[in-house]
Computed example of a mutant assay.
Amino acid sequence: MSFIYRKENFTTTQKDLEIFLDVSHPTINGILKRLEEKKFITTEMTKKDGHLSKTVRLTKKGENVLIESEKEKNLHEEALSAYLTKDERNKLIELLLKVQKSASEMEK
């Protein structure tokens, strides 16, 4: 949902989500169905350049959930890093990014 939140008008396509999340069509269908059941998103079929695509839009409820989860995430980050200096926090981020890059390369 955060991917959709960063898009213009909180709207994207199913295909863009598949690519971003690197998941199959059936997998994203299941995810979108559950999000729609919870009223976090809406979907509709649209025709663009002669092709049908599914447009996915974040609802106000979905937006509110994201905002609240971001607040919670920030509180947890602050609590977890309370005893670190600014330099230590920056170093931790640097190291975690290296680990993430290494993990990504291993998946290839």
Rank of each mutant, 00 (worst) to 15 (best):
M1E: 08
S2D: 11
I4L: 04
I4C: 03
Y5W: 06
K7F: 03
K7R: 15
K7A: 10
E8H: 11
N9F: 13
F10W: 11
F10M: 10
T11L: 04
T11N: 01
T12I: 07
T13M: 07
Q14A: 13
Q14E: 15
K15E: 05
K15W: 04
K15V: 11
D16T: 09
E18N: 02
I19W: 01
F20I: 13
F20C: 09
L21N: 15
L21H: 14
D22E: 11
D22K: 12
D22T: 07
S24H: 14
S24Y: 07
S24L: 04
H25P: 00
H25R: 14
P26A: 01
I28H: 02
G30H: 03
G30L: 12
I31V: 15
L32H: 06
L32K: 02
L32C: 06
K33Q: 06
L35K: 04
L35S: 02
E36Q: 15
K38P: 00
K38W: 04
K39C: 00
K39Q: 14
F40H: 09
F40P: 01
I41M: 11
T42E: 09
T42G: 00
T42I: 14
M45K: 11
M45A: 13
M45N: 11
M45Q: 10
T46M: 07
K47R: 15
K47E: 13
K48P: 03
K48W: 03
K48Q: 14
G50I: 05
G50T: 06
H51P: 00
L52E: 08
L52A: 12
L52P: 02
S53K: 12
S53P: 02
S53H: 08
V56S: 00
V56K: 02
R57K: 14
L58C: 08
T59W: 04
T59E: 00
K61R: 12
K61C: 00
E63P: 04
E63A: 05
N64Y: 09
N64A: 15
N64H: 09
N64C: 02
N64V: 07
V65W: 15
V65C: 05
L66Y: 07
L66M: 05
L66V: 00
I67G: 05
E68V: 07
S69L: 12
S69G: 05
E70H: 02
E70P: 01
E70C: 02
K73I: 04
K73C: 08
N74R: 10
N74H: 11
N74K: 03
L75M: 10
E77W: 15
E77F: 13
E78G: 01
E78F: 01
E78N: 03
A79G: 06
A79N: 03
L80P: 00
L80A: 14
S81A: 08
A82I: 09
Y83S: 13
Y83M: 07
Y83T: 13
L84N: 08
T85D: 00
T85I: 09
K86D: 11
E88K: 12
E88I: 03
R89K: 14
N90D: 10
N90W: 03
L92N: 06
L96G: 03
L97P: 03
L97C: 10
L97M: 06
K98S: 12
K98G: 05
V99Y: 06
V99I: 14
V99M: 05
Q100I: 10
Q100N: 10
Q100S: 13
K101V: 02
S104H: 07
S104K: 15
E105P: 01
M106W: 06
E107I: 14
K108G: 11
